[in-house]
Design a binder for these strands. Structure first.
Lengths: 234, 234
DNA sequence: GCAAAAGTGTTAGATCTACACCCATGC
DNA sequence: GCATGGGTGTAGATCTAACACTTTTGC
């Protein structure tokens, strides 16, 4: 007869792949690890799951501690459960990806914690299986972003169509046709054009848009066809 | 300074939502639970994760034990990590959904284990949060099946277009236009028509098809548009 | 005026949807 | 011959991809 008491118990952690976007490239928030083994090496933001909290709670707590932010877009995407993924002791890690508005929060991040933003294609080597986690998270982000408008979570309140297109191109590692992109975005009803223009990157200037939050909430689960020729790994 | 030793350890389990299809309705494989608490109540197939195995290994082992089958289509989809989900002690559960060909394996299942197939809409109440798991698994199956040809995993070697359509309709809880469905399926290149017909459900008979395995493997990650007007929860 | 980025228009082709219509066969 | 489920055809609407074109404005 199987009983609970005779079964092995394990450490359980959460790790967060935190994405940001600075208008040019997709970025990743990494921290210098604060405990042995591999102390002071780059790692994902993570921590152990406490006895009174769910894994979601733990991920939010860890993010809050490292970024000062509440209410971040957070999505659990995979458990890493290989018995030997940590050299000291078995730890199961529940991985989350997080999307944050980099502009809003960068000041706090860089001062209060040993956190640093890296362009996603120029990240340092990470500890353990964190490199795999990042790779998996990028795939998952790509998948979700092709079907749902989650990338708006990465943008500031005001943004331009060229910025939005760059973001899509970064996430999908591809180039898109501007005409078709604009038409598609405008047809979703998710964008509200403002009168103001951003002239920082062109003479003509690009209109600022804001998100139609009502439409965003109501149509979030509607599957859009945001990327042509979609081929997705996961 | 945080150290591993001072952190809490938890039980970790896997639970499998096993789907089957008998040609008419989508089914769920459930077992009578074999340990306290809630012994002899209906539950998902599950078990504790052993010290030397990954969670994937554990899911495969548990499935093998309960179904006699190797090489089942298996996909991890969520961790259930609420601290109080089990009344005795905290257990984190890694949930997998599995797709199996019901015809091939039903004999073994029903004899050797206390396993039973239930139509997915007529399942009994399950223990703990297993009802939520089933509901989440159905959503995830729906999502994936709308974009990738995974439902073939549920079908026998030979199947007809009407059967396939019924399966899609069951999974998505909707009705589809036969003409459009057939055209779409044939255009994927995934089907190979056989000479034989199934006359069991009509006078004219429906051609049997088999899966083009090569195409299935090569195009698996290509995102198809298998369902119109898609709205997906997860 | 010219260069450069933003944004609009156009067009051929593909796909989608709804629905009408033929097919094969057991009774 | 007719009912029944299987399967095909078709026309209009919609969507797509590619690319040419216009707009704006700092220099």
């Amino acid at each position: 007869m199987i009983e609970y008491a005779s079964q092995p118990h394990y450490l359980v952690a959460v790790d967060c792949i935190v994405f940001g976007f600075d208008g040019e490239s997709l970025k990743l928030l990494l921290v210098k690890r604060g405990l042995e083994p591999e102390i002071n090496k780059w790692s994902l933001i993570g921590g152990f799951v406490g006895p009174e909290e769910s894994t979601d709670d733990a991920a939010n707590r860890v993010l809050k501690k490292n970024t000062g932010l509440d209410g971040i877009y957070l999505e659990q995407f995979k458990v890493y459960g290989q018995p030997n993924r940590d050299p000291i002791e078995r730890i199961l890690s529940v991985a989350y990806f997080a999307l944050i508005d980099i502009n809003k929060y960068s000041a706090q991040l860089n001062n209060d914690f040993q956190a640093e933003w890296f362009p996603v294609n120029e990240k340092p080597e990470l500890i353990f299986d964190h490199n795999t986690m990042v790779s998996d998270a990028r795939k998952r982000l790509r998948y979700k972003a092709a079907l749902h408008p989650i990338l708006f979570e990465l943008l500031p309140k005001k943004f331009t169509l060229p910025q939005l297109q760059t973001l899509f191109e970064e996430v999908n590692d591809t180039k898109m046709d501007t005409g078709n992109f604009n038409r598609k975005m405008n047809s979703t009803g998710l964008l509200v054009r403002l009168d103001e223009k951003d002239k920082s990157s062109s003479k003509k200037g690009a209109y600022y848009f804001k998100l139609n939050h009502k439409k965003y909430r109501s149509d979030f689960h509607l599957v859009l066809n945001l990327m042509p020729n979609l081929r997705l790994d996961i």
